[in-house]
Amino acid sequence: MVPHPFRVERVQRETADTFTLTLEPAAAGIEIRYRPGQFNMLYLFGVGEVPISVSGDAASPVPLLHTVRVAGAVTRGICELGRGGTVGVRGPYGTPWPVEQAEGSDLLVIAGGIGLAPLRSVVYHLMAHREKYGRVAILYGTRSPDDLLYRSEVEQWRGRFDLDVDVTVDHAGLNWHGRVGVVTTLIQQAQFDPDNTVAMVCGPEIMMRFCVRELEDQGVDLGDIHISMERNMKCAVGFCGHCQFGPEFICKDGPVFSYQRIADLLDVREV
């Protein structure tokens, strides 16, 4: 429940307002072993704490990688720390993506905007265990070419013969030669067997709703669609009550849920 100091080893600018921090524990003996989809609470000394998904390779938990978007005082401060700065970290918290349960199935990894950050851990996992999955498609939509996360890495994934990687942007100028259109259009094009597919979707809630509708139209079972939810969080352990979503605590029952489990709640406004 108390943050451990971690040293910022590297700050990588991803987009105009998004940065990836490489963090090493400041003291010996601290190691945060996590599973893809889990999150940590990042603490900026004296300012505050925010939940941020881990976006590294869970198989090598040191250093920790967190992709942070500047959204408020804490995230701004964290992104401005620079190499040598200190961030408090506690975690990991929450439910992971069901990467083991998905073995033997086709896999759709669908990311919108910064939603690629928690799914990057999934991509690392499935590349390391590629033989355990059927066809794998990574579908990524974002606002504009300038908002693409991990751009060179996504290009590398795209170069692999065993991954179908498709990227689309909502808006583009003339220097963009890729797809333009919303991320749901990629689902229509993707190759998968709807009867044996697990989909992991992460992005803004509206984007996830549209994707789920498209997946459902394509015949994917709602129980095989998993989404990662976001709500206000103060404690990350189910005590503060802020992240309640009907009977669910996003921090401990989620953030990753099977769509089926929360479908009814998603239909109610302001739950």
Binding site: Y43, G46, G241
Partner: peptide
């Protein structure tokens, strides 16, 4: 009712910081 919030504060010289927990309300 158990909901709470936390507030992080720092000393004026920035050398110390505290976390306070307060009751909160939905």
């Amino acid at each position: 009712c158990f909901c709470s919030s936390v507030e992080d504060v720092s000393d004026l010289d920035g050398e110390g910081a505290e976390r306070w927990r307060t009751w909160d309300s939905c």
